[in-house]
Amino acid sequence: MVLSARGLSKSFGAFSAVRNVDLDIHHARVHALIGPNGAGKTTVFNLLTKFLQPTAGSITLLGSDITKTPPDKVARMGLVRSFQISAVFPHLSVLDNVRVALQRPNGLSTQFWLPASSLDRLNQQADALIETVGLKRERDAVAADLSYGRKRVLEIATTLALDPKVLLLDEPMAGMGQEDIGAVSNIIREVAKTRAVLMVEHNLSVVSDICHQVTVLQRGEILAEGDYETVAKDERVRLAYMGTEDA
Protein backbone atom coordinates (compact mmCIF):
# COMPACT_ATOMS: atom_id res chain seq x y z
CA MET A 1 0.00 0.00 0.00
CA VAL A 2 1.53 3.33 -1.05
CA LEU A 3 -1.24 5.82 -0.28
CA SER A 4 -3.95 5.56 2.32
CA ALA A 5 -6.55 7.84 3.82
CA ARG A 6 -8.46 7.27 7.02
CA GLY A 7 -11.60 9.14 8.06
CA LEU A 8 -10.99 11.84 5.44
CA SER A 9 -13.52 14.65 5.78
CA LYS A 10 -13.87 18.14 4.36
CA SER A 11 -16.49 20.75 5.21
CA PHE A 12 -17.06 24.14 3.65
CA GLY A 13 -19.01 25.95 6.34
CA ALA A 14 -22.14 23.93 6.99
CA PHE A 15 -21.71 21.93 3.76
CA SER A 16 -19.94 18.61 4.16
CA ALA A 17 -18.27 17.82 0.81
CA VAL A 18 -16.43 14.65 1.91
CA ARG A 19 -17.34 12.50 4.90
CA ASN A 20 -15.28 9.84 6.57
CA VAL A 21 -13.63 8.43 3.44
CA ASP A 22 -11.15 5.54 3.77
CA LEU A 23 -8.99 4.74 0.76
CA ASP A 24 -6.10 2.35 0.13
CA ILE A 25 -4.10 2.73 -3.08
CA HIS A 26 -1.73 -0.11 -3.95
CA HIS A 27 1.43 -0.34 -6.01
CA ALA A 28 1.02 -1.51 -9.63
CA ARG A 29 -2.77 -1.18 -9.48
CA VAL A 30 -5.17 1.21 -11.19
CA HIS A 31 -7.83 2.45 -8.78
CA ALA A 32 -10.86 4.34 -10.09
CA LEU A 33 -12.88 6.86 -8.15
CA ILE A 34 -16.31 7.18 -9.69
CA GLY A 35 -19.60 8.76 -8.79
CA PRO A 36 -22.20 11.19 -10.08
CA ASN A 37 -21.43 14.89 -10.45
CA GLY A 38 -21.02 16.56 -7.08
CA ALA A 39 -20.13 13.28 -5.34
CA GLY A 40 -16.86 14.79 -4.02
CA LYS A 41 -14.36 13.00 -6.29
CA THR A 42 -12.28 16.07 -7.13
CA THR A 43 -12.45 17.23 -3.50
CA VAL A 44 -10.95 13.88 -2.47
CA PHE A 45 -8.22 14.43 -5.08
CA ASN A 46 -7.53 17.89 -3.72
CA LEU A 47 -7.37 16.52 -0.19
CA LEU A 48 -5.01 13.68 -1.10
CA THR A 49 -2.66 16.04 -2.97
CA LYS A 50 -3.00 18.64 -0.19
CA PHE A 51 -4.39 21.38 -2.42
CA LEU A 52 -7.11 21.34 0.24
CA GLN A 53 -6.51 20.78 3.93
CA PRO A 54 -8.81 18.09 5.39
CA THR A 55 -11.20 19.07 8.19
CA ALA A 56 -10.61 15.66 9.78
CA GLY A 57 -8.80 12.41 9.05
CA SER A 58 -5.28 11.47 8.07
CA ILE A 59 -3.32 10.69 4.90
CA THR A 60 -0.26 8.48 4.66
CA LEU A 61 2.07 8.39 1.65
CA LEU A 62 4.74 5.68 1.51
CA GLY A 63 4.59 5.31 5.29
CA SER A 64 4.86 9.06 6.01
CA ASP A 65 2.01 11.10 7.44
CA ILE A 66 1.34 13.90 4.95
CA THR A 67 -1.82 15.28 6.58
CA LYS A 68 -0.12 18.63 7.23
CA THR A 69 2.42 18.57 4.40
CA PRO A 70 2.21 21.35 1.75
CA PRO A 71 1.26 20.30 -1.81
CA ASP A 72 4.62 21.05 -3.44
CA LYS A 73 6.38 18.83 -0.89
CA VAL A 74 3.81 16.08 -1.44
CA ALA A 75 4.63 16.27 -5.16
CA ARG A 76 8.34 16.02 -4.39
CA MET A 77 7.62 12.93 -2.29
CA GLY A 78 6.23 11.26 -5.39
CA LEU A 79 2.48 11.95 -5.41
CA VAL A 80 1.74 13.84 -8.63
CA ARG A 81 -1.64 14.79 -10.04
CA SER A 82 -3.31 16.06 -13.16
CA PHE A 83 -6.26 18.47 -13.07
CA GLN A 84 -9.90 18.23 -14.13
CA ILE A 85 -9.49 21.22 -16.43
CA SER A 86 -6.35 20.68 -18.48
CA ALA A 87 -3.43 22.30 -16.68
CA VAL A 88 -0.68 23.22 -19.09
CA PHE A 89 1.52 26.29 -19.40
CA PRO A 90 -0.42 27.82 -22.31
CA HIS A 91 2.19 30.17 -23.77
CA LEU A 92 5.05 27.68 -23.59
CA SER A 93 5.72 25.14 -26.31
CA VAL A 94 4.93 21.45 -25.86
CA LEU A 95 8.66 20.82 -25.47
CA ASP A 96 9.03 23.58 -22.85
CA ASN A 97 6.01 22.28 -20.91
CA VAL A 98 7.68 18.90 -20.54
CA ARG A 99 11.09 20.43 -19.85
CA VAL A 100 9.64 22.55 -17.01
CA ALA A 101 8.45 19.32 -15.40
CA LEU A 102 11.87 17.74 -15.93
CA GLN A 103 13.87 20.69 -14.59
CA ARG A 104 13.38 20.00 -10.88
CA PRO A 105 14.19 16.26 -10.84
CA ASN A 106 17.26 17.05 -12.96
CA GLY A 107 18.50 19.81 -10.64
CA LEU A 108 18.02 22.57 -13.21
CA SER A 109 15.43 24.83 -11.65
CA THR A 110 17.30 27.38 -9.53
CA GLN A 111 20.20 28.42 -11.75
CA PHE A 112 19.56 32.03 -12.74
CA TRP A 113 23.09 32.44 -14.07
CA LEU A 114 22.91 29.69 -16.71
CA PRO A 115 21.57 30.32 -20.23
CA ALA A 116 18.22 28.84 -21.24
CA SER A 117 20.16 26.67 -23.68
CA SER A 118 21.43 24.71 -20.67
CA LEU A 119 17.97 23.11 -20.67
CA ASP A 120 18.75 21.50 -24.03
CA ARG A 121 20.29 18.60 -22.13
CA LEU A 122 16.73 17.66 -21.14
CA ASN A 123 15.59 17.42 -24.76
CA GLN A 124 16.29 13.71 -25.18
CA GLN A 125 14.25 12.83 -22.09
CA ALA A 126 11.50 15.29 -23.06
CA ASP A 127 11.34 13.99 -26.63
CA ALA A 128 10.96 10.42 -25.37
CA LEU A 129 7.98 11.47 -23.21
CA ILE A 130 6.47 13.51 -26.05
CA GLU A 131 6.77 10.50 -28.32
CA THR A 132 5.26 8.20 -25.69
CA VAL A 133 2.07 10.27 -25.58
CA GLY A 134 2.01 10.81 -29.34
CA LEU A 135 2.72 14.53 -29.50
CA LYS A 136 5.85 14.33 -31.65
CA ARG A 137 4.44 16.40 -34.52
CA GLU A 138 3.27 19.11 -32.11
CA ARG A 139 6.62 19.28 -30.26
CA ASP A 140 7.29 22.96 -31.04
CA ALA A 141 3.67 24.13 -31.05
CA VAL A 142 2.50 26.48 -28.33
CA ALA A 143 0.32 24.58 -25.83
CA ALA A 144 -2.53 27.08 -26.18
CA ASP A 145 -2.84 26.09 -29.86
CA LEU A 146 -3.47 22.40 -29.06
CA SER A 147 -6.95 20.90 -29.05
CA TYR A 148 -8.46 20.13 -25.65
CA GLY A 149 -7.76 16.42 -25.96
CA ARG A 150 -4.13 17.02 -26.94
CA LYS A 151 -3.70 19.35 -23.96
CA ARG A 152 -4.85 16.50 -21.71
CA VAL A 153 -2.26 14.25 -23.31
CA LEU A 154 0.41 16.92 -22.77
CA GLU A 155 -0.59 17.14 -19.13
CA ILE A 156 -0.10 13.40 -18.77
CA ALA A 157 3.35 13.74 -20.34
CA THR A 158 4.35 16.46 -17.85
CA THR A 159 3.00 14.34 -14.99
CA LEU A 160 4.96 11.29 -16.16
CA ALA A 161 8.08 13.45 -16.45
CA LEU A 162 8.33 13.43 -12.66
CA ASP A 163 8.37 9.63 -12.59
CA PRO A 164 5.84 9.64 -9.73
CA LYS A 165 5.31 6.78 -7.32
CA VAL A 166 1.61 7.57 -7.17
CA LEU A 167 -0.20 9.09 -10.12
CA LEU A 168 -3.53 10.85 -9.61
CA LEU A 169 -5.40 11.53 -12.84
CA ASP A 170 -8.52 13.68 -12.69
CA GLU A 171 -10.75 12.70 -15.64
CA PRO A 172 -7.85 12.00 -18.02
CA MET A 173 -10.17 11.02 -20.88
CA ALA A 174 -12.39 14.11 -20.72
CA GLY A 175 -12.65 15.83 -24.10
CA MET A 176 -10.68 13.14 -25.94
CA GLY A 177 -11.58 11.45 -29.19
CA GLN A 178 -11.93 7.63 -29.31
CA GLU A 179 -8.50 7.28 -30.90
CA ASP A 180 -6.82 9.23 -28.09
CA ILE A 181 -8.79 7.34 -25.43
CA GLY A 182 -7.36 4.03 -26.65
CA ALA A 183 -3.83 5.42 -26.72
CA VAL A 184 -4.08 7.02 -23.26
CA SER A 185 -5.62 3.86 -21.80
CA ASN A 186 -2.59 1.96 -23.05
CA ILE A 187 -0.25 4.55 -21.54
CA ILE A 188 -2.00 4.34 -18.15
CA ARG A 189 -1.93 0.55 -18.25
CA GLU A 190 1.78 0.66 -19.05
CA VAL A 191 2.77 3.20 -16.38
CA ALA A 192 0.69 1.38 -13.76
CA LYS A 193 3.03 -1.60 -14.01
CA THR A 194 5.59 0.31 -11.95
CA ARG A 195 3.46 2.67 -9.86
CA ALA A 196 0.06 3.19 -8.28
CA VAL A 197 -2.59 5.05 -10.25
CA LEU A 198 -5.73 6.64 -8.86
CA MET A 199 -8.07 8.14 -11.43
CA VAL A 200 -11.39 9.92 -11.47
CA GLU A 201 -13.17 8.83 -14.62
CA HIS A 202 -16.68 9.05 -16.03
CA ASN A 203 -16.03 6.77 -19.00
CA LEU A 204 -17.12 3.43 -17.55
CA SER A 205 -15.80 1.39 -20.46
CA VAL A 206 -12.34 2.77 -19.66
CA VAL A 207 -12.87 2.00 -15.97
CA SER A 208 -13.93 -1.58 -16.70
CA ASP A 209 -11.05 -1.95 -19.14
CA ILE A 210 -8.06 -0.77 -17.12
CA CYS A 211 -9.00 -0.43 -13.44
CA HIS A 212 -8.34 -3.15 -10.87
CA GLN A 213 -10.30 -1.51 -8.08
CA VAL A 214 -13.26 0.86 -8.06
CA THR A 215 -14.54 3.13 -5.28
CA VAL A 216 -17.94 4.71 -5.74
CA LEU A 217 -18.65 8.01 -4.02
CA GLN A 218 -22.04 9.55 -3.45
CA ARG A 219 -22.68 12.81 -1.60
CA GLY A 220 -19.15 12.73 -0.21
CA GLU A 221 -19.38 9.21 1.21
CA ILE A 222 -18.20 5.84 -0.02
CA LEU A 223 -21.14 3.92 -1.45
CA ALA A 224 -19.38 0.78 -2.64
CA GLU A 225 -15.91 -0.68 -3.25
CA GLY A 226 -14.45 -3.62 -5.11
CA ASP A 227 -13.56 -4.70 -8.63
CA TYR A 228 -15.66 -3.40 -11.50
CA GLU A 229 -17.90 -6.46 -11.73
CA THR A 230 -18.70 -6.40 -8.02
CA VAL A 231 -19.44 -2.70 -8.02
CA ALA A 232 -21.51 -2.89 -11.20
CA LYS A 233 -23.72 -5.55 -9.62
CA ASP A 234 -24.29 -3.52 -6.44
CA GLU A 235 -27.91 -2.46 -6.42
CA ARG A 236 -27.19 0.81 -4.58
CA VAL A 237 -24.62 1.80 -7.20
CA ARG A 238 -26.92 0.90 -10.06
CA LEU A 239 -29.62 3.05 -8.52
CA ALA A 240 -27.42 5.96 -7.57
CA TYR A 241 -25.00 6.19 -10.44
CA MET A 242 -25.30 3.74 -13.27
CA GLY A 243 -29.07 3.57 -13.58
CA THR A 244 -31.26 0.56 -13.17
CA GLU A 245 -30.39 -0.98 -16.51
CA ASP A 246 -27.13 -2.80 -17.28
CA ALA A 247 -24.11 -0.80 -16.30
Partner: peptide, 20 residues
Protein backbone atom coordinates in the same frame (compact mmCIF):
# COMPACT_ATOMS: atom_id res chain seq x y z
CA UNK B 1 17.68 31.01 -17.53
CA UNK B 2 16.38 27.78 -15.98
CA UNK B 3 15.15 29.88 -13.03
CA UNK B 4 13.43 32.30 -15.42
CA UNK B 5 11.67 29.39 -17.10
CA UNK B 6 10.19 28.33 -13.75
CA UNK B 7 9.07 31.93 -13.12
CA UNK B 8 7.32 31.96 -16.49
CA UNK B 9 5.61 28.66 -15.69
CA UNK B 10 4.44 30.05 -12.32
CA UNK B 11 3.04 33.12 -14.06
CA UNK B 12 1.31 30.88 -16.61
CA UNK B 13 -0.25 28.39 -14.21
CA UNK B 14 0.70 28.57 -10.54
CA UNK B 15 -1.36 25.55 -9.47
CA UNK B 16 0.30 23.36 -12.08
CA UNK B 17 3.75 24.56 -11.02
CA UNK B 18 2.92 23.59 -7.40
CA UNK B 19 1.66 20.18 -8.52
CA UNK B 20 5.00 19.64 -10.27
Amino acid sequence: SPFGMILKSIRENEQRAISL
